[in-house]
């Protein structure tokens, strides 16, 4: 488990943002890189690797990885649906959207479809309250969700997965 040359260069760039000796500050950004690179989640092995890159103790990495909600400490499906369920989204029907996704994919919250394609997670306010209901999918937000939009997104993911295989 190692980074590509490109990623290693990126790590050096990140470390250069801080004064000398403060490379621990790079931990959160480098964990993002590791999660992207190593299949969407952080295994103990991945965390140990990050510790060695930044010359810090593995425990310092575990402490951080377990604190922040964006790090997945278990494997997740290729497409992670993170649906916001906080007040303002609830006022605009996020509960119904979550129910619909559960029904459509046949999974509960926190579960992954048997083909390994989709994981459903509920999350707290993502800063898109005016464009509710919404979810995060990868780097971007999907907003103003309706049942039809959810259908479209699922289709889009399925066809992307097929073309990548």
């Amino acid at each position: 488990m190692v980074f590509t040359e490109d990623k290693l260069k990126k790590v050096q760039e990140i470390i250069a943002r801080y004064p000398d000796g403060k490379q621990k500050s790079a931990l959160i950004p480098v964990l993002h890189l590791a999660q992207e690179e190593f299949g969407g989640w952080l295994s103990a092995e991945a965390m140990d690797y990050v510790a060695s890159l930044l010359s810090i103790e593995p425990i310092e990495v575990y402490e951080v990885a377990t604190f922040y909600s964006m790090y997945n400490l278990k494997p997740v499906g290729r497409y992670l649906f993170e649906v916001c369920q906080t007040g303002p989204c609830m006022l605009n029907g996020s509960d119904q959207i979550i129910d619909y996704i559960k029904e459509k994919l046949g999974i509960g919250v926190g579960e992954t479809t048997s083909d390994g394609l989709f994981t459903l997670k509920t999350v707290e306010c993502l800063g898109a309250c005016g464009y509710a209901p919404m979810m995060q999918l990868g780097k971007h937000f999907r907003e103003h969700l309706t049942r039809e939009k959810v259908d479209q997104i699922i289709e889009e993911c399925r066809s992307r997965a097929t073309s990548m295989n």
């Binding site: 943002r17 959160i28 964990l31 993002h32 604190f67 922040y68 306010c125």
Partner: peptide
């Protein structure tokens, strides 16, 4: 100026 991303924590 540098941009630092958090990782999910209000």
């Amino acid at each position: 100026i540098y941009v630092q991303r958090g990782a999910g924590a209000y």
